[in-house]
């Protein structure tokens, strides 16, 4: 088991390093003129600059170093969580992120339970209800949720619950009432995806031979569903849940834009609009790191929940 743990940890680190490399290549090697790109983002008009001024600017951002030097320098700094200076705002990337991360975390912490409860609840009902029309309706619902663009859902909720019913504020960040609509928006897509996967997983599990064994013992449908179906059917959903959790920052981009919340997502949107390369790089890396860490945890959780995976892990 420690061997498996170490292996998975090393793998996660390798993926993170590779992700850094990919992002670096895209941002620093791909653009035809990365220097112009970055300097113009810093508000400088290159055609107006004298060569000396240009040189000073390049020096300040480390842009005249050879590309490999920039790469290793950036990697070393990133390992120390130092992402350099923002090009558009005169502060460090680190301080910008620590400023905004709280708002996004707050939103996520409310949205996540909503998502999990909504997704599992809907699937559980759809699988348990016997009355055909209700069952069909419940089973079709997630397909709608998965198709609607998140920004549309957000705008619809604002129109209905703020402008028409005046129950919740449309924007802003004061108090729990302002959290409700963004959290619901954020959780809807994930809940729909979870429910979609679980409904199929439940149906597949109900058809498995070991369920016949359980029913032949004389257990009621409810008991069978709770004790034998739920756990086996949830295992594939755990993987999806990990992915959804790892997408927190990404989700926040759209939701925070719709509800004008000042979090990491808004920061990301502004960074891209301003082509603020260091800031974009840092946010993407944080998103990737979140993804990798959550999925590492999910993998470890598997070894606790599924004896077959545990056996495979013990074997190396």
């Amino acid at each position: 088991m420690p061997r498996y743990l170490a292996g998975r940890l090393a793998q996660a680190l390798a993926v993170l390093w590779a992700a850094y490399t990919v992002v670096f290549v895209i941002l620093h090697v791909l653009p035809s003129d990365p220097i112009t790109l970055q300097l113009s983002a810093g508000g400088a008009d290159i055609s107006q600059l004298t060569p000396t001024q240009l040189h000073i600017l390049k020096d300040r951002y480390g842009l005249d170093d050879p590309i490999l030097t920039q790469y290793f320098h950036g990697l070393w700094n990133a390992l120390h969580l130092d992402f350099g200076m923002s090009l558009t705002q005169n502060v460090t990337v680190g301080s910008l992120i620590t400023d905004k991360v709280g708002s996004t975390l707050e939103l996520t912490l409310v949205a996540l339970p909503l998502m999990v409860i909504g997704g599992i609840g809907l699937a559980y009902l759809a699988s348990y209800v016997q009355w055909r029309p209700a069952r069909t309706l419940l089973a079709r619902l997630p397909a709608v949720g998965v198709s609607l663009p998140q920004f549309f859902v957000g705008l619809l909720l604002i129109q209905a619950f703020s402008f028409s019913l005046h129950w919740f504020p449309a924007t802003g960040e004061d108090g729990w009432r302002s959290l409700v609509l963004p959290a619901v928006t954020m959780s809807l897509l994930g809940a729909a995806m979870l429910a979609q996967l679980l409904i199929r997983s439940f149906a597949d599990t109900w058809r498995e031979p070991h369920i016949a064994t359980a029913r032949a013992k004389g257990l009621s449908r409810g008991t069978v569903q709770l004790r034998h179906v739920l756990r086996n059917a949830s295992l594939p959903a755990l993987t999806l849940l990990g992915i959804l959790l790892g997408y927190t920052v990404t989700n926040a981009v759209v939701v925070e834009s719709v509800f004008s919340r000042d979090g990491l997502g808004q920061l990301a949107q502004r960074a891209v609009l301003g082509q603020d390369v260091p800031l974009v790089q840092a946010i993407v890396l944080i998103a990737a790191a979140g993804f990798v860490v959550v999925n590492l945890l999910v993998d470890l959780l598997y070894t606790l929940l599924d004896p077959r995976v545990a056996a495979a892990a013990r074997a190396g």
Binding site: Q11, T239, I243, Y247, V298, D299, V309
Partner: peptide
């Protein structure tokens, strides 16, 4: 059985922004 591996090896293209992709491959 689905055996978890690296972060990326997880049920491929299921991502929140392609809700669509959920139906087929992860299953």
């Amino acid at each position: 059985h689905v055996t978890p591996t690296t972060a990326g090896t997880l049920a491929a293209p299921a991502r929140p922004h392609d809700g669509a992709a959920l139906t087929a491959p992860p299953l």
